[in-house]
Simulated scan of single mutants.
Amino acid sequence: MKKTITAMVTCGALLVTAAPAQAAPKDPVRALKAVLVSGHGVRFTETTTLSGDPAIKLQSRKGTFQFNAKGIAASDIRATPKNSKPERTINVGRFSYISGGITAERLSSGTWYRSRGLPGGGSGFHGQVINPAEPKTLAALVKKGRVTRSAITGKITFKELAKVSAWFDASIPLRMHNDTKVSYTLTLSSAGLVSRVKSSYAATGVIDSGAFDGKTMTIDSRFTGWGAKVSIKAPTSGVSTDSDS
């Protein structure tokens, strides 16, 4: 009997020893800061839909963010909205340069409207509200959410997001309801970097219109090439400035 018990204990010890250790989740904020190098950046593609029967695709976008040590130094975004002309927005430092889209009726083709703010152009009002290239934003999402080895999930209000995210606050400066909650899922790569952001919120949070009552805005963004070399420059010709420039 003693031999049997001894054998069982030994087998149990071997099983415990053989069990693989579970790796702790990589720190996504630390992973992000490691790639924030001037002259490098990340690319993204994005689709925005409005819930309904059927759901409506409001716009698609693709673009590039260029980094500095603190986060985003410049961006170049092309948007194809459902109900307006294609738009391109280049943001460098304090200024945004918008061609097409909301400026199409005021400016001739190939010219740029320079303004302070609106880094996402007119498409920013239907664009991704969560920018994973901002360390403060990512830290807030980690703090408020649940972090696993492959994802970060949670909820954050517009008001909370505006406090930490310069991108959100500038992209959507006019908001109807700051208590609107954004549900988010950030998919993480094996290196701890964000490869996908899917966010959703009540559509009336930005535009309080009867057409948006009870509907949800969902934005799905994919990020690739973290740390790749990029170069974004402001347009040098065909620029029309606003009165505040």
Rank of each mutant, 00 (worst) to 15 (best):
M1Y: 00
M1S: 10
M1H: 03
T4F: 12
T6S: 11
T6I: 09
A7Y: 01
A7C: 07
C11K: 13
A13L: 15
A13C: 14
A13I: 13
L14W: 04
T17P: 00
T17R: 09
P20D: 11
P20T: 04
A21I: 09
A21F: 10
A21S: 13
Q22P: 00
P25W: 00
K26H: 09
K26I: 14
A31L: 06
K33W: 03
A34K: 14
S38R: 15
S38P: 12
H40S: 15
H40M: 08
T45V: 12
T49W: 08
S51E: 10
G52Q: 11
P54Y: 06
Q59P: 03
K62T: 12
T64K: 02
T64P: 04
T64S: 03
T64M: 01
F65V: 07
F65W: 11
Q66E: 15
G71S: 07
I72N: 12
I72S: 05
I72M: 12
I72L: 12
I72D: 02
A73N: 08
A73M: 09
R78M: 13
A79V: 09
A79I: 02
T80C: 02
N83C: 07
K85V: 13
T89K: 03
V92F: 05
V92D: 04
V92E: 01
G93Y: 04
F95Q: 04
F95L: 12
Y97N: 03
I98L: 14
I98T: 14
S99E: 08
G101I: 04
G101Y: 02
I102C: 06
I102G: 05
I102F: 10
T103K: 05
E105H: 13
R106K: 15
S109Y: 10
S109C: 03
S109G: 13
W112A: 01
R114D: 10
R114N: 05
S115D: 08
R116I: 14
R116S: 12
G120F: 00
G122I: 01
S123P: 07
H126L: 15
Q128W: 00
V129G: 07
N131R: 08
E134N: 11
E134W: 08
P135T: 09
P135K: 12
T137W: 03
V142S: 06
K143N: 15
V147L: 15
R149F: 00
T153Y: 00
K155R: 15
T157D: 06
F158A: 06
K159M: 10
K159N: 15
L161Y: 02
A162H: 03
K163P: 00
K163C: 04
K163V: 05
F168I: 05
F168Q: 09
D169T: 14
D169E: 15
A170P: 03
S171P: 02
P173M: 06
L174W: 11
M176I: 07
H177L: 08
T180E: 04
V182L: 11
V182G: 04
T187F: 02
V194M: 01
S195D: 12
V197A: 14
K198A: 11
S199K: 03
S200D: 11
A203F: 01
A203V: 04
A203D: 04
T204D: 06
T204F: 02
G205F: 02
G205Y: 03
V206A: 01
D208Q: 11
T216I: 14
I219R: 06
D220Y: 06
R222S: 14
R222N: 11
R222L: 13
F223C: 00
I232S: 06
I232L: 05
K233P: 01
K233N: 12
A234V: 00
P235R: 05
V239T: 05
D242S: 11
D242C: 10
D244K: 14
